[in-house]
Amino acid sequence: MYGIVNKAIEDLVIANFGEEKWEAVKLRTKLDIDFFISSEPYDDDLTYSLANAVSEEMNMSVADVLEAFGEWWILKTGKEKYGDLMEAGGEHLKAFLINLPMFHNRIMLIYPKLTPPEFRVTDIEENSILVHYFSKRIGLKAFVRGLLLGLGKMYGTPAQVSLLADRDAGDDHEIFKVSW
């Protein structure tokens, strides 16, 4: 994953728990990096190690850490780093979700080495939509759930997100129902 992801985890920890906790997370992962370069790719294992270390240090489940990080990514990192791009996604939550499959195509222009997930949407209703998540990376469904919840908050549209299909249960991808 790109350094911007790891930097966002650092920012989340420092903002919510303080610099000392970030230093403790770094010690747990044996991280010997003073700062992350946003535009540089890092091994995915580092990002997973950071999430696990935050989980242990904060006494939270990894799923709760990833969900919180997903919300943080939308409400802080996304708005600060990709504000115009986020705003171009649509005027409301439903429009953004419908346009979501094209979002990573735009991001790939910024990060050419990106291995993005793929999103598809189906069953578009007045107050709900199904979001299909395909990725080579495993273990990120809680992060995606957090992203979807964060988008609801970004648009001032409280959303409920339920998991309808799960690779852990033998499905070939995750399907989330987003309702508002």
Rank of each mutant, 00 (worst) to 15 (best):
D168S: 08
F36D: 06
M60A: 07
R28Y: 10
W22L: 05
S162C: 04
Y155M: 13
S61L: 00
S128C: 09
D166N: 14
R145K: 15
K94E: 13
Y133V: 10
E20D: 14
I37S: 08
L151C: 08
K153L: 03
N105R: 14
G89Q: 13
A165S: 10
G18T: 07
L140P: 01
E57R: 02
G18Q: 09
S55R: 07
G78W: 06
A169F: 00
H173K: 11
L31S: 03
K7R: 11
K26R: 15
R106G: 11
A8Q: 10
L140A: 01
G3Y: 03
D64W: 02
V178T: 07
E10L: 03
A8F: 00
D34R: 11
D32S: 12
F96N: 05
D11Y: 00
E23M: 05
Y111T: 09
M102K: 14
S38V: 02
S162G: 02
D168G: 11
R28N: 14
S128W: 04
V121A: 10
V121L: 10
T47C: 09
D84E: 15
G3M: 04
N105K: 15
P116G: 10
P41D: 06
A8V: 02
G89P: 05
V5G: 00
L31C: 08
A159K: 10
E67N: 08
P101E: 11
Y2D: 06
L66I: 02
F36S: 06
M1H: 07
R137K: 14
V144K: 01
W72L: 05
G18R: 08
G170M: 00
E174R: 05
S135H: 13
I33Q: 08
F96G: 06
D171M: 01
M1D: 02
F103Y: 15
K26A: 13
L149R: 11
E57P: 06
S61C: 01
E87G: 06
R137W: 05
K79V: 14
S162P: 00
D11G: 00
G152Y: 04
G152L: 03
Y133Q: 08
E56W: 04
E19Q: 11
F103G: 10
Y155C: 13
E19T: 05
K79A: 08
E174D: 13
V144S: 01
L149Y: 04
E87F: 05
G170N: 03
Q160N: 15
I107R: 08
S135W: 12
I110L: 15
S179F: 03
Y42H: 05
L149W: 07
I107F: 05
M86W: 12
I74M: 11
V54A: 03
W180D: 02
V13C: 02
N6W: 01
K26Y: 03
Y155N: 13
E10V: 02
I37E: 14
A165C: 01
G83P: 11
V178A: 07
D32L: 12
